[in-house]
């Protein structure tokens, strides 16, 4: 069971959260200006690191807010978090 540090509610069990995938992937402001490769990179390509991973979670069954957090994908240890999406 992950104990996920919600920046608004404190550490809460994993079952209250929904995973939102890699953080800091912004939808391009003007998709029609992108070529296919750039659009595919936004939609499908991920860093998928072994180690520190910046990711989004949503505390759906709590405050329902999104936040970003850095977790180690090997040890599952959470490093830091920030509000916002």
């Amino acid at each position: 069971m992950l104990l996920i540090p919600c920046p608004f509610c404190g550490p809460r069990p994993e079952i209250e959260f929904v995973y939102g995938g890699e953080a800091h992937i912004a939808r391009p402001a003007d998709p029609s200006a992108l070529d296919d490769a750039a659009w595919a990179a936004f939609l499908h390509t991920r860093s998928n690191p072994r180690g520190r991973h910046a990711e989004r979670w949503r505390h759906l069954h709590g405050c329902a807010r999104f936040f970003n957090v850095v977790r180690d994908t090997v040890t599952d240890r959470f490093a830091e978090h920030e509000a916002g999406g």
């Binding site: 994993e14 079952i15 995973y19 890699e22 072994r50 990711e55 994908t73 090997v74 599952d76």
Partner: peptide, 13 residues
């Protein structure tokens, strides 16, 4: 389990 992982073990949920 539903989140990125390289740990060869999962969680209880």
């Amino acid at each position: 389990d539903g989140y990125n992982s390289y740990a060869q073990r999962g969680g209880l949920p």
